[in-house]
């Protein structure tokens, strides 16, 4: 290799390295400056969404006696056998309730942790690992929130994601104590703007509100025009008592597909149905176990 070419290559390598280092420095610095604000925003947004799907806002604030209890679900693998570990509040603290895949109670392990500490995924995983022992492999599945008002169970909040027309749709959903739909909010989606993206609109999401467990389960997506009065009530053109009556009249209707986005509409319905029925099954099994073992939960 000639001397000139060698010099050239060295110079390129040095310059590229310096450029990369500089770029890294700038990006790292921006990350450090914005990281905290970003996390805070996400948490705020999460809380706002939760209150809004429960039906609370500034003019109708949540009662002071309301409390939220988070349950984390883990899949536990020990050799060939799998089981489900629920990390849930027991008494003043948290505890792990382990159920086998058939829903039979296996064991209960008390855990020394408070709710705020468990919100951090890393700390939560280490708490869980400590509780079940090092031989068991743990995998976080999902979390759900049980809302109580003065000790009385009023609602469930669940997170979920399911396939949409293009990529996954991430939602947050609220159910009341009888598993009827209180509402859901689309947190993330990449459906087509103007078509499938309309799933975030009130007139589409509103169709799910108030549907009972059975009504939701049997609902289909239909390609018919939405009745005018129903659309007016959902978009807020008619408000107050009248709107509530119209919505009550149509609550048993199937889901009216979005114009030009039948597949997106169907994905949302199927996804919601699957989420609710899975949750219904899990909650019933967990409730039975809690009741049979006399575990003192705050909900």
């Amino acid at each position: 290799m000639s001397n000139a070419a060698f010099k050239d290559i060295t110079s390129i390598v040095i310059r590229l390295t310096v450029t990369c280092l500089l770029a890294g420095l700038i990006m790292g610095w921006a990350f450090i400056l914005t990281h905290e604000g970003k996390e805070k925003n996400e948490q705020l947004r999460d809380e706002k969404v939760m209150y809004s799907i429960l039906g609370y806002d500034k003019s109708n604030p949540a009662p002071a006696t309301m409390a939220m209890h988070t349950i984390y679900r883990y899949v536990l693998t020990n050799g060939d056998s799998q089981s489900i570990g629920y990390l849930l509040p027991i008494g003043e603290k948290y505890g792990v309730v382990e159920l086998d895949l058939g829903g039979q109670f296996v064991r209960q392990i008390p855990v020394d942790a408070v709710a705020s500490k468990l919100r951090n995924e890393g700390e939560r995983n280490s708490v869980m690992q400590q509780a079940v022992g090092n031989q068991t492999e743990i995998r976080y599945a999902d979390s759900m929130i049980i809302v109580t008002n003065a000790g009385e169970r009023t609602a469930y909040i669940l997170d979920g994601k399911y396939p949409g027309f293009k990529t996954t749709i991430r939602v947050k959903m609220a159910l009341d104590a009888q598993f009827s739909m209180l509402g859901f909010e689309v947190l993330e989606h990449e459906e087509d703007p103007g078509l499938g993206a309309e799933i975030v609109e009130k007139y589409f999401r509103g169709q799910f509100e108030g549907k009972s467990f059975e009504q939701l389960k049997s609902a289909k997506v239909i390609r018919e025009d939405m009745p005018d009065d129903y659309r007016a009530a959902l978009t807020g053109k008619i408000t107050g008592k009248e709107a509530a009556e119209i919505r009550q009249k149509h609550v048993g209707d199937d889901i009216y597909a979005l114009t030009g986005a039948t597949i997106s509409s169907r994905s949302v319905l199927n996804g919601n149905q699957a989420m609710v029925s899975k949750f219904h099954h899990r909650m019933t099994v967990l409730d039975e176990a809690i009741k049979a073992q006399g575990i003192q939960t705050p909900f």
């Binding site: 450029t19 770029a23 914005t34 970003k38 925003n41």
Partner: peptide, 24 residues
């Protein structure tokens, strides 16, 4: 060209981060 791409990517990342923190 690699230098341009790096520069653009850096500024895009910075703006992405700033927007997510300041204008959620």
């Amino acid at each position: 060209i690699p230098t341009y791409t790096l520069t653009i990517a850096t500024w895009v990342t910075v703006i992405d981060l700033v927007l997510s923190a300041a204008f959620p």
